[in-house]
Simulated assay, not measured.
Amino acid sequence: MKLSHIPLRLATGAFILNSGMGKMKLDTDSAAGMKQMAANALPQVEQLESEQFGKYLAYAETALGAALLAPFVPSRLAGLGLTAFSAGLVAMYLRTPGMTQEDGVRPSQEGTAIAKDVWMLGIGLSMVLDTRTKASKD
C-alpha cells in the first residue's frame, strides 16, 4: 500500500464499514426502500426479498469497508471494489426520479445525500489507475 493511499482508504473504509454495520439489523420497511432505490440502477435486485437484500447490502458494505482498512489488501483490489460499489451508487442516483434537477445531473434537495457519493467513485478510480510500482520507478 502506498503512503498516499492511506488517507483515502482510512476515510472511505471507516465510512463504509460503519454504514454496513449500521445496516446489519435493518427493519423490513427500510430494507424495502433501499431495495427499491437499488433496483433503479440494477433491475435484478427486484428478484430478492427485501430482508435478503438488506442482509446482502450490509455484508457487502462491511466487507468492502474492512478490505479498505486492511493494509494487506492491495490498493488496486480495494480500489476495484470501491469503484464497483460507488458506480452502483452513482447509477442509482442518476436513475432515481427526484434525485436530480431537470438537467439530470445536478442534485436536487433530495438527491444531495446520495450525489455526494461521487467522491468515492473518484477515490476508487484513483486507486485503480495509480499504476506506478516500485519496478516502474527504477
Rank of each mutant, 00 (worst) to 15 (best):
Leu3His: 07
Lys55Gly: 01
Gly81Gln: 04
Thr100Ser: 04
Gly22Arg: 06
Ala39Ser: 15
Ala135Arg: 12
Leu68Ser: 11
Met21Ile: 14
Lys134His: 08
Pro7Glu: 05
Glu51Met: 14
Met99Asn: 12
Leu129Phe: 04
Met92Phe: 00
Trp119Ile: 14
Ala32Asp: 09
Arg76Met: 08
Glu61Ser: 00
Pro97Leu: 09
Thr133Asn: 01
Gly104Tyr: 03
Ala38Met: 14
Val128Trp: 06
Gly124Thr: 03
Leu17Met: 05
Ile16Cys: 06
Gly20Asp: 09
Ala91Met: 12
Gly65Pro: 05
Glu49Asp: 15
Leu89Asp: 01
His5Ser: 15
Thr112Arg: 15
Tyr93Leu: 11
Leu77Gly: 00
Glu110Cys: 08
Ser86Cys: 05
Ala41Pro: 05
Met37Ser: 12
Glu110Lys: 15
Arg106Thr: 14
Leu10Ala: 12
Gly124Asn: 00
Gly88Met: 06
Leu125Ile: 05
Asn40Pro: 00
Gly33Val: 11
Ile6Pro: 09
Ser126Arg: 11
Tyr56Ser: 07
Ile123Ala: 15
Arg106Met: 13
Pro43Glu: 12
Gly20Cys: 13
Val73Gly: 06
Thr131Asp: 03
Leu64Tyr: 07
Leu26Phe: 08
Lys23His: 12
Lys2Pro: 04
Pro107Cys: 04
Met92Cys: 01
Ala41Asp: 08
Arg95Trp: 01
Thr96Cys: 00
Thr62Phe: 02
Ala14Met: 14
Met21Ala: 03
Ala14Phe: 15
Ala60Thr: 14
Leu42Arg: 09
Thr131Trp: 09
Tyr56Ala: 15
Ala11Trp: 15
Ala70Gln: 04
Gly13Ala: 05
Thr100Val: 03
Leu57Tyr: 13
Ala66Tyr: 11
Ser4Trp: 12
Thr28Glu: 15
Met127Leu: 15
Lys23Gln: 08
Lys137Trp: 08
Glu49Phe: 09
Met99Ser: 06
Thr28Met: 10
Ser4Arg: 13
Ile6Ser: 01
